[in-house]
Design a protein around this nucleic acid. Structure first.
Lengths: 348, 348
DNA sequence: GGCGCGGCTGACAACGTTGTCAGGTCTCAC
DNA sequence: GTGAGACCTGACAACGTTGTCAGCCGCGCC
């Protein structure tokens, strides 16, 4: 039988309230809530009724305090609004949910200070683990956290020096090499490179791949054909205007990430120099993007698989959380060249 | 002076450990950590040194248990990987961070059961508030949570019946009306409608707008010109093939959301019926999308502002959390028609 | 009748923090 | 010399849960 209970007014009911309502001890409620065996079915039913009556829900914060594990992880990326990271996020979420874990998400906005704040805030909430796409390259602040048992996996970019931690990267150099070589194989000898800020690990690796491909093709590296920086419309417009005005202008363009590719296409349009099916400057871009196949010409890309990146990192994290030991892993995920037209245009 | 302390081995240092190391009482450490005034500067400095030495970080879980507020909110959307929701997410994140709050994110995948699980899991963590893009239309499970003081704001779609809660919606009907009227104004009399599953609130509202615009233009509603369902490639391909094979086929197409627009464009391409600058079926799509302006012809859209939606919902939530009372608000955000070419093609 | 055992229940401490309250020391004015 | 007040510090309970341990009851067996 259910005893009515004087509602204490404000605030949520606790196990104590449920216990009082059901006429049992606190601990019995705990057992029912956690579906432990050894509770008489009639008693359990009375407790369940009291729970429903009061709208009780277990306070996981208190539970965590008692047990240690929070069943939550933190994900720090550059920007959820960027398709690359949103695909990565979704994959991380799915793996986490499959492991009974919730996900704190935060965008650093390529600001190492904000990255640090987010990570430490997550650590203060005692997340079990972290997946980090770092913005900065000093992660000393993580040392005490790792020592305290929080596991971290770095994704897309490695941790700063001195941190021996699991890392999942993309084959940036190989991908850029393949993309650049593809252009060279189609007869281009003046290939420009538009990349992100060279302080960013991936941008620098991709530049390296570009240079290696040039060398393999017997082409000289010409600094005048390289422009790097944040992919803003105005900057790219100016860079491309400069490149096209060179006495010996490039006949092909390798762009270092998705945002740069799209922005460059817009800038070329504004400069009246966008490739057409009939011809024009050839383009290969790092990163696939939505509708690349619907432009004319369709855009040839070196595709990464951001979902795979997120999934791999998350699975690695959960393997660690379930006790897997061993030295820090450092994985490289492959890229794939998708020829669609813009990278197969011949030089004039 | 710092006393050395016997490291207890596993686990993180607590305030107690710091207190022992600094030779002060637990409460003094608490005061220093929380930057309360009234602590002698020399003492405080000793405590800070002990904190640094031990790598101490406050356990926010315990703090929350004591204080009641968690400084975290939960965000449930359909899919972070969808650009619409990823823009919304970013806006929510930014507002939350500005209010000193962290964000749990979860994708329901348009599954009402998963929505419920996510929301209740967030509630068990005692988030202060929720922003929900609902997948289902029964939110009875939220009643006890709301009664217990968790604030919720529904975004993009309303809560199920019986729940009187803050809601931020888009002007779906008005937008669809404007888009359809735009096509009619350009001379089209056979306008097809491709929408999402009509069980989804926004899809149904947009269909209504489409019908209203037809009526205003003196055009008859023809069920044969309407196809609704999940925007999968095969389904849309079949629907469009059927439409184009009609004895009196449509000369224009209104598509009910971003995913549908993009998928329909691909299907038209496969059917060799994609519009060109020279002519073809006219298209207006609900939702703007990246590169809509770079296709040929560029795609005319009825644009929502997902970031604005997220920001508005989050700001409303935080106003509630900071004590604003009053009846539940129900906001409607405007849409904007952006003419780019595909919607201005004349009928043949 | 006594003993052991399985099944069920409850009392109590502990998790790491903060709010409350009390106490101690010092300074200053009377 | 004493009281008032400012300043600093600490003891203790409480937040809501779970782990540990002990106890009760009824049963079957010696």
């Amino acid at each position: 039988m259910i005893h009515t209970v004087a509602e204490t007014g404000r605030g949520r009911p606790t196990m104590n309230d449920v216990a009082a309502a059901a006429g049992v001890a606190l601990k019995t409620v705990s057992r029912v809530v956690n579906e432990e065996r050894g509770v008489n079915e009639a008693t359990a039913e009375r407790v369940r009724q009291a729970i429903a009556l009061l709208g009780y829900r277990r306070n996981d914060g208190a539970r965590v305090l008692r047990r240690g594990r929070t069943a939550s992880i933190g994900l720090v990326i550059e920007d959820v609004a960027d398709p690359f990271y949103s695909l990565l996020s979704r994959a991380v979420e799915d793996v986490a949910l499959g492991n009974g874990s919730l996900v704190f998400t935060g965008s650093s906005g390529e600001d190492s200070l904000r990255e640090r704040e987010l990570v430490l805030a997550f650590c203060a909430r005692r997340v079990d683990g972290l997946i980090i796409v770092p913005a900065g390259d000093d992660h000393g602040y993580l040392v005490p956290e790792l020592a305290a048992g929080i596991r971290a996996v770095f994704a897309d970019r490695p941790a700063g020096p001195g941190l021996d931690v699991d890392t999942v990267l993309c084959d940036n150099t190989g991908g850029a090499r393949a993309g650049t070589a593809h252009l060279a194989a189609h007869g281009h000898r003046r290939i420009a490179f538009l990349g992100d800020n060279p302080a960013i690990f991936t941008a620098e690796e991709r530049l390296r791949g570009y240079r290696e491909a040039l060398a393999s093709a017997g082409l000289a590296y010409d600094a005048a054909l390289v422009a790097m920086g944040t992919p803003q419309q105005e900057r790219l417009h100016a860079d491309l205007a400069r490149l096209l005005a060179l006495p010996d202008p490039p006949t092909a363009l390798f762009t270092g990430n998705g945002r740069t590719t799209v922005t460059a296409l817009r800038a070329l349009e504004a400069l009246d120099a966008r490739p057409t099916a009939a011809g024009g400057i050839a383009i290969v871009g790092f990163d696939d993007f939505e509708l690349a196949d619907m432009l004319s010409p369709a855009v040839t890309v070196v595709a990464q698989d951001p979902a795979n990146l997120g999934r791999t990192a998350a699975e690695l994290l959960f393997r660690r959380l379930s006790g897997e030991t061993g030295p820090a892993e450092r994985l490289r995920l492959p890229t794939r060249l998708i020829a669609r037209g813009s990278g197969e245009l011949p030089p004039p």
